[in-house]
Structures are given as structure tokens and as C-alpha cells.
């Protein structure tokens, strides 16, 4: 009876809390297709080369309008794209950063340093909005955690079960959005300034299709060709992976530590179980009819 109740209660508890994972998806918007990511799962890690390619896509395409509020130095950090310190220093120096006030009380510009944040494309939010049809493009550093979609019952329960777990809603959404530009279906009128996107809630998105095949040149392999195709599909995946890293820079450390913590607790609880069993054997155990032979402890 009690075991059954326990199981039932556990199932219900999981059911209730999983219901919290609700993310807006307007009616009639298909859910983004699930992609395979190197950073998914218990042992997930980022693919350095993919993050480096993703950064290149951000720099050459997204950066025209979207801010990425992270310091240059983090691009060299462990668990990220891991550019070399020399590469990051050179990269930062390519940007002009406003500093000041100096001794004369004036603001001045200087080349960027690794400790600087990547400068925003617009001086402030109003300027960004004015240049983009009245609405500032969102900053991208946590966008992979700020977007998602609802999978509905029973998936919200399945998605928390070990080894079936699914946390990559954000990157899947980014990938789907960037590959989701298409002609509107017959009878669908796209308002001026809007663009049709299959996966955007409500289908009308202000951002025009930013990517096209061959737009970003990827680093060449030894045979003189890029090891991955230079297509919208690949750009979207690389960018989504990169943005997952910017949103969750400690992801690798977290998963590595989590695995060790759970192994430790599993061993600990296994030992605790037998300690408890031995202690309770002194008073005849907890189970019905268990024989009690050992003498009582000092407190009994």
C-alpha cells in the first residue's frame, strides 16, 4: 500500500511541477524540430570548432543589429570557443571602445582590450529601435535561455526523466527560426515591415531573413575546403550552439560536476541504507514480523 502510494505521489509531484515549463507558443505555430547537439545529455560538451564558427556567424551577420553583452576575454575561457589569448587580444583591438573621462574630463575612444565587453552596435536602446523599425533587436547573450516552446502533456513529464531529458528548447528554437523563413501560405497577409516565419509565434517577425547559403566563409581544412557545408542550415546550428554557450558558459563544468555529485550521493545513499538497516535490526527491523535479536543501544 505504502509503496504504491509513494510511487503515485512521486508521479503526481513530477507531473505538477513539470506543468510549470510553459513557454508561449501562439496557436498554430509548429514546434521546432529537435536537433542533435553535442552539449545535450548528461555528458554533453560544446564542440569548440562549432562555437568558433558560431561566433564568426554572429560577428559577420547578427552583430550588425544585435548586442552580445559578454567580455572578449570569455571567448578564451575554458568550456567555451577557447580562442587563444593572442587571438582574443587581436580581436578586441579591432573594436573601438569608448573610455573616459580622462584627466581633461573628456570621453575618448581606444582600441578594445580582452577585459572589455563586446561593444553594442547602437549607442543606446532608442537608437537601436529607431534604426530597426521602432523596436530594438534583443541582446543575444541569454537568448538561448529566454526562448522556448511548450511541448505539452505528456512530454513535459518525459522531458525530465534521466536519459530522456530535454533542455535544448532554446537552441532548437533559434535553429528553427533561422531556417524557418518561407513564402507565406495562400491567404496569409504579412503586414508591411514584417516577414513570414514558420516558427515565430504568430508567424510575423520584424527581422528579415538574415542568412543565405555561402554568406559566411568558414575556416578551411587541410584540403582547402571547409570541413562543414557553408549553408543556412549549418550557420543556424553553429550560431545556436554558440548562443547556448553565451547563455550558459558554465554548462560543461556544471554537467561534469553534476555527474560526480550524483555518483557520490548514490554511493552515499547505498551505504546509508545498510547503516539504517543494521541500526533498525536491533529493535526487530521495520518490516512486519522481522525478528529482533540484537540487544538495545545505550539510549534504549
Amino acid at each position: 500500500m505504502n509503496t504504491r502510494h509513494a510511487l503515485l505521489a512521486a508521479a503526481l509531484a513530477v507531473g505538477t511541477l513539470a506543468g510549470a515549463a510553459t513557454v508561449q507558443a501562439a496557436e498554430g505555430t509548429p514546434n521546432p524540430p529537435r536537433q542533435s547537439w553535442t552539449f545535450a545529455g548528461v555528458f554533453g560538451t560544446f564542440d569548440r570548432a562549432q562555437l568558433q564558427r558560431g561566433f564568426k556567424v554572429y560577428r559577420e551577420v547578427c552583430q550588425a543589429c544585435h548586442q552580445l553583452k559578454i567580455p572578449f576575454r570569455t571567448l578564451a575561457q575554458n568550456g567555451g570557443p577557447q580562442f587563444s589569448v593572442a587571438q582574443v587580444t587581436a580581436l578586441a583591438a579591432e573594436y573601438k571602445v569608448q573610455d573616459g573621462p580622462n584627466d581633461a574630463g573628456e570621453m575618448f575612444e581606444r582600441p578594445g582590450r580582452p577585459a572589455d565587453f563586446i561593444p553594442p552596435p547602437f549607442p543606446n536602446e532608442n537608437a537601436a529601435a529607431a534604426a530597426n523599425g521602432g523596436k530594438a533587436p534583443p541582446p543575444l547573450q541569454v537568448i538561448a535561455k529566454a526562448r522556448g516552446f511548450e511541448r505539452g502533456f505528456p512530454w513535459f513529464i518525459v522531458d525530465v526523466i534521466p536519459f530522456l531529458q530535454y533542455q535544448e528548447h532554446g537552441p532548437d528554437y533559434i535553429h528553427a527560426l533561422l531556417t524557418g523563413y518561407e513564402e507565406p501560405p495562400a491567404g496569409f497577409t504579412v503586414p508591411p515591415g514584417g516577414h513570414y516565419n514558420k516558427y515565430f509565434p504568430g508567424h510575423v517577425i520584424a527581422m528579415p531573413n538574415p542568412l543565405s547559403d555561402g554568406q559566411v566563409e568558414y575556416p578551411k581544412g587541410p584540403d582547402g575546403r571547409s570541413p562543414v557545408p557553408e549553408t543556412v542550415e549549418q550557420y543556424s546550428k553553429d550560431l545556436a550552439a554558440f548562443l547556448m554557450w553565451t547563455a550558459e558558459p558554465a554548462l560543461e563544468q556544471r554537467k561534469r560536476m553534476g555527474f560526480m555529485v550524483i555518483i557520490f550521493l548514490a554511493v552515499f545513499s547505498y551505504l546509508m541504507y545498510y547503516v539504517k538497516k543494521k541500526v533498525w535490526a536491533q529493535v526487530g527491523g521495520e518490516a512486519e514480523g522481522a525478528p529482533g535479536t540484537a540487544p538495545l543501544g545505550p539510549t534504549g
Partner: peptide, 27 residues
């Protein structure tokens, strides 16, 4: 013993589904 088992359940969320119980809009 029960607390250790509960900690294991807790750890699963913290390390592998840290944002599942939150809402994406809060980012």
C-alpha cells in the same frame, strides 16, 4: 538516508535541468 536520496533528486534538477522549473521569459 531519506535526505541523501532527496539530495540526489535535487541534484538532478540543479545540474541537468536547471531552468526547467523556471520560465524562459524570466531571462
Amino acid at each position: 538516508f531519506a535526505t541523501v536520496v532527496f539530495m540526489m533528486f535535487f541534484a538532478w534538477w540543479v545540474f541537468f535541468l536547471p531552468n526547467y522549473l523556471g520560465h524562459a521569459d524570466n531571462y
